[in-house]
Simulated scan of single mutants.
Amino acid sequence: MPTPAQQLHNHLQTLKDGWPILSLIAAKKANIMARSTGNGTHSIAPIPVNIDAWQLKQDIDLLTRKLTRAAGLHPHRGMAVPALLKGIMLHETNLLTHDDADTITEQIALAAERMDRMLNPPPACKMIGPCPKCGYELWCTELEMFSGYKACDRCRGEWRIKDVQQASVLRLALGGAQGTAAAIARWMDPYGVAVKPNTITKWAKRGILEPVNVDENGNPVYNVWDVWQTFTRRDKDK
């Protein structure tokens, strides 16, 4: 059984080693676009495919910078997370003797666990979004997807899967995310939202869904939130 010091070291090592891969996942781009306007012009910029990987990256970045202060370090402002973690690992005893040591080690352990699950997801599972209560990633088996409910592995709260999926879509939609039928279908699939590009196109042809733009190839572009609302409305009508 590892000692608390060994566990802390292992968790910090997990964060340090996994950071480059997590950064690559979070930086991948899809043909889903977020619109911004100003001074009569507008631009359409790609956003991360895996928004949860991006959020985890931000959370670990923030945690790491808090840990540098807790460890009594004074790094340069521009230092990258792996370099900061390397410095923290050289001063782990400062964290273990800190007044908030229990909270600090728990936060590090949770971040390391989230990192591990993101980089090594359970087989045949879908990550539908974070737990509304504790923020832990909710991975669902096919049976759980069929049941419609998921219990959080961390806080044990039970949630309706469609509500969690909707919250994930809303996070993207609040940024004005738009994309082609194929792009939106690719983005929704990892969250267990089974909508096909052809289905989105058929909705548009039938006047159920309205495109808001076209891309550089002339393909219709839709609001992510409009697609989600149409998907859930049609699902209820079945």
Score class of each variant (00 low, 15 high):
S147A: 11
A124K: 10
L172N: 10
I128S: 09
D99L: 10
A177N: 01
D99Y: 09
E106K: 11
L110Y: 07
E106T: 15
S168I: 00
N94G: 15
M115W: 14
L172K: 11
W159E: 10
C125L: 03
K133V: 11
V169M: 06
V169Q: 01
W139N: 09
I128Q: 05
D116P: 01
E158T: 09
D163Y: 10
T97V: 14
A151T: 15
L174N: 14
E137D: 12
G176W: 05
Q165Y: 11
E142M: 11
G157R: 01
D153R: 11
K162P: 01
A111E: 00
E106D: 12
W159C: 03
D100E: 15
D153G: 15
L96H: 00
M145Q: 10
K133I: 07
W139Y: 13
Q166R: 07
R114Q: 13
C131H: 06
C152P: 01
G129E: 00
Q107V: 01
G175N: 07
S147K: 13
Y149A: 05
C131Q: 03
E158F: 03
Q178A: 06
W139M: 10
E113Q: 14
C131W: 06
R154P: 01
E142C: 06
G129L: 05
M118L: 14
C125R: 14
R171Q: 14
I108S: 00
P121I: 12
Y149K: 07
M118I: 11
P132D: 05
G135N: 06
L138K: 03
C125S: 14
A177T: 11
M115Y: 11
A151W: 07
E142R: 15
Y136G: 00
D102C: 05
T141A: 05
K126F: 13
T105P: 05
D102W: 05
C140P: 01
A124Y: 08
G129Y: 04
M115I: 12
D153T: 08
L170R: 07
K133N: 10
A109T: 07
F146T: 13
W159P: 02
W159Y: 15
L174W: 09
C152G: 01
P130M: 02
L143P: 01
N120C: 11
P121C: 13
R117Q: 15
A112E: 00
G179V: 08
T141E: 03
R160M: 13
P132Q: 06
R154L: 13
C140K: 01
W139T: 04
D153M: 11
T141Y: 08
C152T: 00
A109C: 02
L119T: 03
G175H: 08
A151L: 11
T105I: 13
T103V: 12
C155E: 03
Q107A: 08
D99P: 11
K133E: 09
G176E: 02
Y136K: 02
